[in-house]
């Protein structure tokens, strides 16, 4: 069973997001436990650059696993303010700690309404349940 922490927000494309405690306009983004398991062991993570402006739904990272490459879509519009540089040498952190050390980037969001409209844990569980039915 894949972990879906209660305190996070989610997308149907298996990203998670959470507002930073110190500055509520800064949101940390990563991929879910389900996503990392589907991808398999990561060998390379292509992150955006700090300062990049992105729109919600944009392809913003590429995750390369032992199997294949896949895109990460930004849950939010805004400006990239930080990236997880540890992933350059240790892409496997996304597999081992998808909700903590394996975070991808921080974004200064343009529109807090977008954040509010993301799925909550329960909504994301439903997405996973549908996914399983399809399999």
């Amino acid at each position: 069973m894949n972990r879906v922490p209660k305190e996070l927000k989610y997308t149907a494309s298996h990203e998670w997001a959470i507002a930073d405690d110190l500055d509520k306009n800064i949101v940390i983004v990563g991929i879910t436990d389900f996503a990392q398991e589907q991808l398999g062991e990561l060998v390379y993570v292509e992150l955006p650059e700090v300062g990049d402006k992105v729109a919600a739904g944009d392809e913003v990272c590429v995750l390369e696993s032992v199997k294949a490459a896949s895109d990460v879509f930004s849950p939010l519009s805004g400006k990239i303010v930080a990236i997880n540089e540890d992933l350059e040498d240790s892409p496997g952190l996304v597999n081992t700690h998808p909700y903590h050390d394996g975070w991808l980037y921080k974004i200064e969001m343009q529109d807090p309404v977008e954040y509010d409209e993301l799925l909550d844990a329960e909504g994301y569980q439903d997405v996973l349940a549908e996914q399983e039915e399809d399999d």
Binding site: V43, Y44, E46, E64, A68, A69, E88
Partner: peptide, 8 residues
Amino acid sequence: LQDKGVLR
């Protein structure tokens, strides 16, 4: 590949 990335 000398740069980072993966050949496929």
